[in-house]
């Protein structure tokens, strides 16, 4: 069989789901960041596939910007983790509960 748009979309949707459930279920913020990256990669795969099968360049353009923005986002995220670790000594999500009424 030939690999068409649906196969690419299935991979992309699966990756997105893996990333999303990782974000929901994991407790370590570093792992959560990795799962966020997986979600963005899934988007990139979908965009490249659509771009190829639609025959337009806009999707590819968007992918390059997504990669750049994702790098910036991770830089900020890691900075926030470092700031938090210095104050609390932990990066576990369940211990981030001091902001409750």
């Amino acid at each position: 069989m030939s690999i068409g748009l649906n196969e690419f979309l299935a991979v992309s949707g699966l990756l997105f789901a893996i990333g999303f459930f990782g974000v929901l279920l994991r407790r370590n913020t570093l792992i959560i960041y990795m799962c966020l990256e997986i979600m963005l990669t899934a988007v990139a795969i979908a965009l490249v596939a659509f771009s190829r099968f639609n025959g337009s360049m806009e999707g590819l353009l968007l992918v390059f910007f997504i990669i750049t923005v994702a790098a910036a986002e991770v830089a900020i995220g890691l900075a926030i983790i470092v700031a938090l670790f210095r104050k609390r000594g932990t990066v576990q999500v369940e211990e981030l509960n001091s902001l409750q009424p």
Binding site: L5, L9, F16, G19, F20, V23, T29, I32, L36, M39, L40, A42, V43, A46, L47, A49, F50, F53, N54, E58, G59, L62, I66, E73, I76, G77, I80, I81, A83, L84, K87, R88, L96, S98, L99
Partner: peptide, 30 residues
């Protein structure tokens, strides 16, 4: 430490929503 925690939660939810927005955009574009 409250400020860092606020930033962490804002960042986590913001990044997830950005990923959802992008995936939605990619489907609409496709």
């Amino acid at each position: 430490s409250y400020s860092a925690e606020a930033a962490m939660k804002y960042f986590l939810f913001g990044s997830i929503s950005a990923a959802f927005l992008l995936f939605g955009m990619s489907l609409v574009y496709g």
